[in-house]
């Protein structure tokens, strides 16, 4: 990778390692991992389970400190969770004691906006995800797919610089999942926000992203950076695009190869 590419990135994970100590043994979950994303780019991270995908995202979000290396967003090092990075979780993380509008307006209220202003903005964002008429429902009254939309709206209301998504659609059924992928792409196009999307689903990664980082098994490292030049906007027809199938085979072959214990990956650095 060339320095020009690095220069153009605003989210940079630079040679990051993460060590956990469990039962007196230390274990590298992530080792020397380097990746980056340009402003407004959709980047995906795929890898075998246990390769440290979620750990990587937790470090990006600021929930976990890095053991070595650095993570920067727009040149500022990440030192803890903050509203500039919105995190979408695998599980439902809405506040059950707040209404849909209350959940979406939560971050705005923290910023000191009035109740009325927060609600107005919440309704505007809910309109974006098509849930305006459910503003006064409680999360428990909604389906899993609707709750994920609310979770997305809650992130967007904060106008984050980057969205970090940790297999957010993993628990949804196939159809809802496709709807959510479409919705995410629509919102991403409209808001021009950087997305880092972690998933174990190779097809999902290729369908959504501009570029896919393929990780090795533990300790997680970048095995290959795969450029996805499928045309946008991506539609349900994209799923059957031969180019997508070809890329999918390529990534799957990489992943299978990386599972071999004797395999020594040629680790990719952007510079």
């Amino acid at each position: 990778m060339d320095p020009a590419f690095l220069q153009s990135c605003h989210l940079v994970v630079n040679r990051v390692s993460k060590r956990f100590v469990a039962n007196g043994e230390s274990l590298w979950a992530v080792r020397d991992l380097t990746l980056c994303a340009r402003p407004g780019e959709f980047a995906a991270v795929v890898g075998p389970s246990g390769c440290g995908k979620s750990t990587l995202l937790a470090m990006l979000a600021g929930f976990e400190p890095v053991t070595e290396g650095s993570i920067t967003l727009e040149g500022r090092p990440v030192a803890g969770p903050g509203p500039d990075r919105g995190v979408a979780f695998q599980e439902d993380a809405l506040f059950p004691w707040l209404t849909v509008a209350g959940n979406v307006g939560y971050g705005l209220r923290l910023q000191g906006r009035s109740r009325a202003a927060a609600r107005e903005e919440a309704l505007r964002v809910l309109n974006l995800v098509g849930l305006e008429e459910f503003a006064d429902y409680y999360p428990a009254q909604l389906s899993g797919g609707m709750r994920q939309r609310v979770a997305l709206a809650r992130l967007l209301a904060n106008r984050p610089r980057a969205l970090l998504m940790d297999e957010p659609f993993g628990a949804l059924d196939a159809l809802t999942r496709m709807e959510m992928q479409q919705l995410l792409l629509e919102v991403w196009t409209k808001l021009n926000v950087t997305v880092l999307f972690v998933t174990h689903d190779v097809e999902e990664a290729i369908f959504l992203a501009d570029r896919v980082y393929v990780l090795t098994a533990r300790p997680g490292r970048v095995l290959r950076r795969v450029e996805v030049d499928l045309p946008r906007p991506r539609t349900p027809d994209t799923y059957t695009d031969p180019a997508l199938t070809e890329l999918r085979h390529e990534v799957l072959a990489l992943l299978l190869e990386a599972r071999n214990p004797s395999y020594v990956p040629e680790v990719v650095y952007p510079y």
Binding site: A61, G82, P83, F89, A93, W97, L110, N158
Partner: peptide, 27 residues
């Protein structure tokens, strides 16, 4: 209080004080 709620609140910009009043208390 579910740890996930705490993470969600922090990610949305909650300080320790906010966390007490907007998550611990209602939950």
């Amino acid at each position: 209080v579910r740890p996930l709620w705490v993470r969600a609140a922090k990610m949305l910009g909650a300080s320790r004080r906010d966390l007490f009043f907007t998550v611990t208390l209602p939950a």
